[in-house]
Design a protein around this nucleic acid. Structure first.
Lengths: 144, 144
DNA sequence: GGTTGACTTAAAGTGCACTTGAAGTTATAT
DNA sequence: ATATAACTTCAAGTGCACTTTAAGTCAACC
């Protein structure tokens, strides 16, 4: 049973589909992250499956992986199942780093929220004239 | 009642105390974020309160504020209470942007976790030989 | 069939947030 | 007293992830 001929995307359409610019796609290709097909005239074309691949890469990138880490991951992947332990170890390390950052960033948000509340209450005349932000924070048990 | 003479930090000691390098502190000063005192010989010194100030700036920075946004915030702050509405609006915008990013990043983590689990199960021989990652994701209802 | 827009490569440029270097002064320890 | 370490300014350099430019080829529309 022959599958329907796959839709072919120009680099411009593909860029639109994945939310990147065409130059960025060429840059990623240069870095070895993507390998589009070529028409006889030299022009690139992309297929449906490439969309999923790029979106997956962007998820990994969004967890904090650099281009060179992605490149390493992709190289291992091209070498087949023998490199699964390496890939798994890399992703686990990325996850650990991510979680550390995630906790820090939540703390930053806490302080930002406190400051916003402080300004809002100050505007509404709720805090006493000379209460400092630090004293205010202390009331909530936040430190640093 | 005279308060105990405040401890004075050299730029090196202060850098240590706040977790930045001395050049970075000079850079921040250049950008108008910090204003240390000076000894008669021209050398900078910092006091306890400066530690809290820098740590607060680093919290704001950690929520995604750029150096130039911090600069704007600091300038408004120097202009007194009249600029509280501007400062509040800025921080509220920062918070909105932060929360958007925060949601996205949680989704990225979800995909990373799925991929790690997929590798772990594959290593343990749990998934069927030819199940694709996408099919695996679909079992959990994750998309994109 | 000509104009407009999308594509091609390779190299150079950008923006951010620092970091490093050069050249010199000052403080501290032996 | 002298070595060494920390400070000073100002300018230039770095790393990352793109973005822009230049010079040219190709495709689609009227």
């Amino acid at each position: 049973m022959p599958t329907a001929t796959e839709k072919q995307y120009t680099i411009g359409d593909f860029a639109n589909a994945v939310g990147l610019s065409a130059p960025t796609l060429r840059y990623y290709e240069n870095e070895g992250l993507i390998e589009p097909h070529r028409h006889d005239n030299g022009r690139r074309y992309y297929e449906e499956a490439d969309i999923n691949w790029v979106k997956f890469l962007l998820h990994l990138k969004g967890t904090g992986m650099s281009i060179s880490e992605l490149k390493q991951y992709v190289q291992w992947r091209a070498q087949g199942d023998a490199t699964i332990p390496e890939r798994l170890a890399l992703l686990q390390q990325v996850k650990r780093d991510f979680l550390v950052q995630f906790n820090e960033v939540q703390h930053h948000l806490q302080i930002l929220n406190d400051k916003i509340n402080w300004y809002e209450e100050k505007e509404a005349g709720v805090t006493t004239d000379h209460e400092s932000f630090r004293a205010y924070l202390d009331r909530f048990g936040h430190h640093e």
